[in-house]
């Protein structure tokens, strides 16, 4: 099964490309201090330097800061926030979804109403409001993003639990006298890991987009250089200096694309039947 899975994943060109992109982004994020030892906030050259001029790969911004350095350091913030908020959202979503799906009944009704509500309200506006009110910081951003991201996962997990719960192997576990916790964690959860992993990888992508949108509006962590902030602060000079907006935005595009490709690759590898249908 594991070998089949790896094989299926490796045969998917998109997934491998995604893995390569995300791997490169992680490397750049880890090596940012080696590649660009100076702070990305410091002036490195003349303002409005074009790409490749003065040895600056991506040029400089209106304060003469090195854009390449900003992009490299920005990768850290994006990945950190993407991962942290996804972990938090997955924890909330899996827990609520599992409880709702396993116990059913009124509890399920109640939890699902609650979840539906969180899915309906305008996500991004809520994130903006929360971050603005609690002042932007890594923590407030992660919490806000997690708070608006868990709902779809909770629904997904709940659906899986609901269908697996009535599956005969779960009923057999009940007739064999196993407890609720054993059944939830040992019998059911391992059987819905694949959809959870797939949506988690897509959630990292969405979280990165959300974070970049926040910092574009000026609601990023003021101490961390981030891609969205770079695009946001450069947009007023778009006419004179396209590169200031272009490179950080392109970095977001690549990272998110890579994560989505990985997510789809995982999905295809987990569901061989679907994969065949797709190719059919």
């Amino acid at each position: 099964m594991n070998r089949d899975f790896l094989h299926a994943f490796a045969r998917n060109k998109g997934a491998v490309l995604g893995l390569a992109i995300v791997g490169a982004v992680i490397l750049v994020a880890l090596a940012a201090d080696l590649l660009f030892p100076a702070s990305p906030w410091e002036m490195a050259g003349a303002p409005f330097g074009r790409p490749l001029a003065d040895g600056m790969l991506m040029g400089t911004d209106m304060l003469g800061r090195d854009i390449a350095s900003g992009v490299a350091h920005g990768a850290r913030v994006s990945l950190l926030i993407g991962l942290a908020s996804t972990l938090a959202a997955v924890a909330i979503g899996v827990l609520l979804g599992a409880v709702a799906g396993y116990y059913g009944g009124r509890l399920d009704d109640l939890l699902m109403r609650f979840t539906e509500l969180f899915q309906t309200i305008p996500n991004f506006v809520l994130v903006v409001v929360i971050v603005a009110i609690f002042t932007p910081s890594l923590v407030s951003i992660v919490v806000a993003i997690a708070l608006v991201s868990w709902a779809p996962l909770a629904r997904l997990v709940r659906g899986e639990f609901l269908s697996l719960r009535s599956r005969e192997f779960v009923q057999a576990a009940i007739t064999c006298g196993q407890g609720d916790a054993t059944i939830i964690f040992r019998q059911i959860l391992p059987n819905c890991m694949s959809p959870i992993i797939v949506s988690a990888s897509l959630m990292v992508a969405t979280a990165i987009l959300l974070e970049s949108s926040l910092s574009f509006l000026g609601l990023g962590d003021p101490n961390a250089m981030s891609w969205g902030f770079m695009v946001g602060s450069a947009r007023t000079v778009l006419r004179q200096a396209w590169w200031m907006c272009f490179f950080p935005g392109f970095a977001i595009l690549l990272t998110v694309l890579g994560l989505n490709l990985i997510g789809e690759g995982l999905n295809d590898a987990f569901n061989p039947r679907l994969r065949r249908k797709r190719k059919a």
Binding site: A205, L209, S212, S213, F216, G228, V231, G232, R235, L238, W242, C245, F246, G249, I252, L253, V256, L257, N260
Partner: peptide, 13 residues
């Protein structure tokens, strides 16, 4: 995969 505001900026460009 593209940030919506960046698409806007590129279209303007």
């Amino acid at each position: 995969a593209t940030p919506i505001y960046w698409v806007g900026l590129m279209l303007v460009l």
